[in-house]
């Protein structure tokens, strides 16, 4: 399928200042027609409510294919991430400057490993 047949979607990022700066430098940033950015910089003054609102906003947008979120920030809105079960947009947890990635906390990996119940192992 050629490029002209499929409209490209964006990668959104929710993260601390350095994560957002890095990924925007990497060339993923764009404003949509309503002049809404596809990133949210989270600092110590950003409330959980603001993060949740931004995340839900990204989920609703049809021009976003993948949402990158720092795992430390994902921990704050874990209940929202766990409730998202659609394939698009895909939510990926990434490491931050302060803390490395921990696969045991990852929502998708926990969901995938959930197929092995104790009864299956008998």
């Amino acid at each position: 399928m050629s490029h002209s047949a499929v409209k490209g979607k964006l990668i959104a990022v929710i993260g601390d200042e350095d994560t957002c700066t890095g990924f925007l430098l990497g060339g993923i940033g764009e404003l949509n027609k309503k002049r809404e950015p596809n990133f949210l910089v989270v600092d110590k003054n950003t409330s959980r409510h603001d993060i949740e609102e931004a995340f839900r906003g990204f989920l609703k947008r049809d021009d976003i294919a993948i949402i990158l979120i720092n795992q430390t920030i994902a921990e704050e809105i874990r209940y929202v991430i766990d409730s998202h079960d659609q394939p698009i947009p895909a939510v990926l947890e990434i490491p931050s400057k302060d803390s490395p990635y921990d696969s045991s906390k990852d929502s998708i990996l926990r969901r995938a490993k959930g197929m092995f119940s104790a009864e299956d192992m008998r």
């Binding site: 399928m1 490029h3 499929v6 979607k9 964006l10 990668i11 925007l24 060339g27 940033g29 596809n38």
Partner: peptide
Amino acid sequence: MCALTKVKVR
């Protein structure tokens, strides 16, 4: 600002 990398979804 304009995205240099985009994603095709199939």
